[in-house]
């Protein structure tokens, strides 16, 4: 079965979506969508460096994204620099450097589209192993820090006063997002990774009464998006990455329409 490229694509995509859902919930709750986007943009530099140094691109990506995460933590200390400005600078700066470095790597130019927008149908056996390892580590670690991270998200001071190592769990969370981005790059590409994190989570919010339920629903909706997008891509021969994101958006609209009829779309109160 693993010989079938479609099955490999589906397996890899679903694995990533299952962990992107819960992780994406925290991205949504902590209002870090742009943070995830920035880390994803820096991934291209990782790909370029990986190829330049002839190491696995995935390793290059994981390294650069982790460095980007640390750089963001460091930049946050400068009060004179607005955090969204820092994010924008890092996002576009690292993307630019990544593109420049990529232009020096022979043959990478041809491949650029697959890195920017994903190439899920090209997932090989080795990719699957990398994805499985990344997803397993992320899932396990997220499970371990779940309570602490949620407490730190609800009220950091309260969590800290009650013994939660707030700084540490925040850092671990940033590293997990970095790891997921490295794993998800093959699926939807650098420019669309954040969509896989936030759209299923946003849709899940409409039908969830607790953080844990929202995480499970987001995982489920993400997996459905991968399947649906893959089907759409085969059906109308569209690029797979954008098709998956489109499927997620369609799911979001469907959830909105479904719940809107019951609950009304007016409950914007806090």
């Amino acid at each position: 079965m693993l010989d079938d490229f479609l099955f490999r694509a589906l397996l890899g995509g679903v694995m990533v979506a299952l962990v992107a859902g819960p992780l994406g919930c925290f991205v949504v709750w902590r209002r870090m969508a742009y943070f995830g986007d920035t880390m994803a943009h820096s991934a291209l530099l990782g790909v370029s460096l990986g190829l330049l140094l002839s190491i696995q691109p995935v390793i290059g990506v994981a390294l650069v994204v982790v460095i980007a995460a640390f750089a963001l933590f460091w930049l946050e200390r400068f009060r004179w620099l607005a955090s969204d400005t820092a994010l924008g600078m890092l996002a576009h700066g690292s993307l630019a450097v990544g593109l420049v470095v990529a232009s020096t790597v022979p043959g990478l130019r041809i491949d650029l589209m697959s890195y920017l927008f994903g190439d899920i149908l090209a997932i090989g056996r080795q990719d699957l192993i990398w994805i499985a390892a990344g997803v397993a580590i992320t899932m396990l670690a997220l499970g371990l820090i779940w309570r602490d991270l949620l407490a730190a998200t609800v009220q950091a001071d309260l969590a800290k006063a009650e013994g939660v190592p707030v700084g540490r769990v925040r850092l671990i969370f940033a590293l997990l997002v970095a790891l997921l981005i490295a794993a998800a790059m093959k699926i939807v590409g650098i420019l669309l990774v954040t969509a896989l994190l936030i759209i299923p989570a946003a849709a899940a919010r409409r039908v969830s009464g607790s953080p844990e339920v929202m995480a499970l629903v987001a995982a489920l909706l993400g997996a459905i998006s991968v399947g649906g997008g893959l089907g759409l891509s085969l059906w109308i021969d569209s690029p797979s990455g954008p098709s998956i994101v489109l499927a997620a958006i369609i799911l979001f609209v469907l959830v909105l329409a479904g719940t809107g009829l019951v609950a009304g779309g007016t409950d914007r109160r806090r």
């Binding site: 949504v28 709750w29 609800v154 919010r205 969830s208 009464g209 607790s210 953080p211 109160r269 806090r270």
Partner: peptide
């Protein structure tokens, strides 16, 4: 608690 986080 922000409305983006469902918390009972």
């Amino acid at each position: 608690v922000d409305a983006v986080l469902p918390l009972r």
